[in-house]
Amino acid sequence: MSPSWLVYLSACLICCLVATTTVRGLPLQEDQDAKIDIPDGRIVGGYVTDIAQCPYQISLRYKGITTPQNAYSHRCGGSIISSNEVLTAAHCVIGTVPSQYKVVAGSNYRTGSDGVITSVKEIIMHEGYFSGAAYNNDVALLILDPPLPLNNFTIKAIQLASEPPLPGAISKISGWGTTSSGGTASDVLLAVDVPIVSNEVCNQDYEDFGDETYQITKEMLCAGKRGVGGADACQGDSGGPLVVRDQLYGVVSWGNRCALADYPGVYANVAELRSWIDVNRPAL
């Protein structure tokens, strides 16, 4: 092989390596090439908890419409807000139909049939999802039938926040997502405690991320250990709860990979989206 060809091949190899190492983590999508997309997140840097400590937490189980022979498998988290309503992320359910889901409540486990299993009767997705900014208005209501048997112990509705949390407030995030970006999902329920980060600071952190569509809007809030990292939601946690003082303040939405020191996790801001939630809830 001539020296000129060796130089050419070396240059191509270097370009390929640079391209590979500079690709950014896509927000809360576990496998962009998979036929069945599992939206993000698992808990990173957390601890094993018990469903009695997070009785509002559910596992949203999914199967493809073209694979009815398959079992339902964990796709996202969600929060019980009444006996027949779950709040989750819009990106968990976009392009799907209710019959593709089961909701499992009162269980510590990502797989299996313990706990209470019910069906999704209706999906009400925010009509403004992704408008104005990437992952904006990332919420959806799931209407359940039959209703969940609330017992105030392992299956309990959580109160919705009406005001955004203060920066520095400690939030609790829970779920069965991966323990590292692109890693393995947890079989047992995990939780992690992280401080709220102001939208102004979070927007500065994401200033160089992606394109101009990735910005922190008032319909979002952020949480993470800035400058430290190591604690966050991750793939498989999407749609799950961010809780402060026993109220639901956030819905796991997106972020740059998981638990990076320079990029807090981003959540749908329940207080800002409260009016949409209340208007779209069916009469109880």
Rank of each mutant, 00 (worst) to 15 (best):
N136M: 05
V116C: 04
G132D: 13
N108W: 00
T111D: 15
Y129F: 15
M125P: 02
Y135H: 02
M125I: 15
D114V: 01
Y109E: 10
Y135L: 11
N137Q: 07
E122L: 13
G115V: 12
G112F: 00
G115A: 02
F130G: 11
N137C: 03
R110T: 10
R110P: 01
R110C: 02
N108Y: 01
S113Q: 14
G132E: 15
Y129N: 13
A134K: 05
I117C: 01
G115H: 02
E122P: 09
S131T: 13
Y109S: 10
N108L: 01
I124S: 09
M125V: 10
N136T: 03
N108C: 00
R110I: 06
E127M: 07
S119M: 11
E127L: 09
G128T: 07
K121V: 00
I117N: 09
R110M: 09
S119P: 09
V120M: 07
T118L: 08
I117Q: 06
D114A: 04
I123Y: 11
G112I: 06
G115T: 05
E127R: 07
A133Q: 06
G132W: 09
E127D: 12
S119E: 06
N136I: 03
G115Q: 03
S113P: 02
G132N: 05
K121W: 13
N136C: 02
T118C: 05
Y129R: 09
F130E: 15
K121G: 03
E122C: 04
V116H: 01
A134Q: 04
E127V: 01
H126E: 09
A134C: 06
E127H: 08
V116L: 03
Y129I: 04
I123S: 09
I117A: 04
D114G: 08
S119L: 13
F130A: 11
Y129C: 05
Y109W: 09
I123A: 03
T111L: 11
F130C: 10
A134W: 12
Y129W: 15
V120H: 02
A134N: 07
K121Y: 08
N137R: 00
T118M: 12
I124H: 08
T118K: 08
N108V: 04
H126W: 09
A134F: 03
A133W: 05
N136W: 00
Y135N: 10
V120G: 03
G128R: 12
I117W: 08
G128P: 02
G115F: 03
N137L: 08
N136L: 04
N108D: 11
S131I: 14
G115L: 04
F130Q: 14
H126K: 10
S119R: 03
K121A: 14
E127W: 01
N108K: 00
S119W: 07
T111A: 05
T118E: 06
S131F: 12
T111E: 10
A134P: 00
Y129H: 14
